[in-house]
């Protein structure tokens, strides 16, 4: 259908997947932040680099986003990164790493929102037949 093509052939599905991924990652970052003083807690994270690689190869192959099951797998694949110092209480907290990850993730989220808004605005403009 024409309207379906308009909505689903552009970058929108791709952007939606990025949004879902950043939302899921933000949740884990908030969890890490809440558990900053819990002995034995290991930090949780999603593999953003792998996600971006998968996404860019999907784009190169002419797809509008990741396949649904690939996407589910990568957003549910919670990892325990071991690149920070393990403290004596068994927690590998790194507040600086967390803060910068949080900022980057939120900026990415808000950037993608803006791109998506732009797309919808284009659609709106076309539908209204005038420049808003």
């Amino acid at each position: 259908m024409f309207i379906d093509n308009m909505i689903n052939q552009s970058g929108a599905p791709l952007l939606e997947q990025v949004l879902q991924f950043t939302a899921a990652r933000h949740k884990l970052i908030a969890e890490n932040m809440a558990n900053i003083d819990v002995p034995g807690y290991l930090q949780k994270d999603l593999d953003i680099h792998r996600f971006q690689e998968m996404l860019s190869s999907a784009v190169e192959n002419g797809q509008t986003g990741l396949a649904a099951d690939d996407f589910d797998r990568i957003t549910n694949d919670v990892q325990n990164p071991t690149n920070s110092i393990l403290f004596h209480d068994g927690n590998n907290r790194s507040i600086e790493q967390l803060a910068s990850d949080q900022a980057k993730n939120a900026l990415m989220h808000n950037l993608v929102i803006e791109l998506l808004r732009d797309q919808y605005q284009g659609l709106n403009m076309a539908l209204a037949e005038k420049v808003s």
Binding site: T22, H26, I29, M33, A34, L98, A99, Q102, A106, N110
Partner: peptide, 13 residues
């Protein structure tokens, strides 16, 4: 404070 900051970020998102 760190948790408050996280909340602010969540709210902005």
């Amino acid at each position: 404070e760190a948790n408050v900051t996280t909340m602010e970020v969540t709210k902005s998102m």
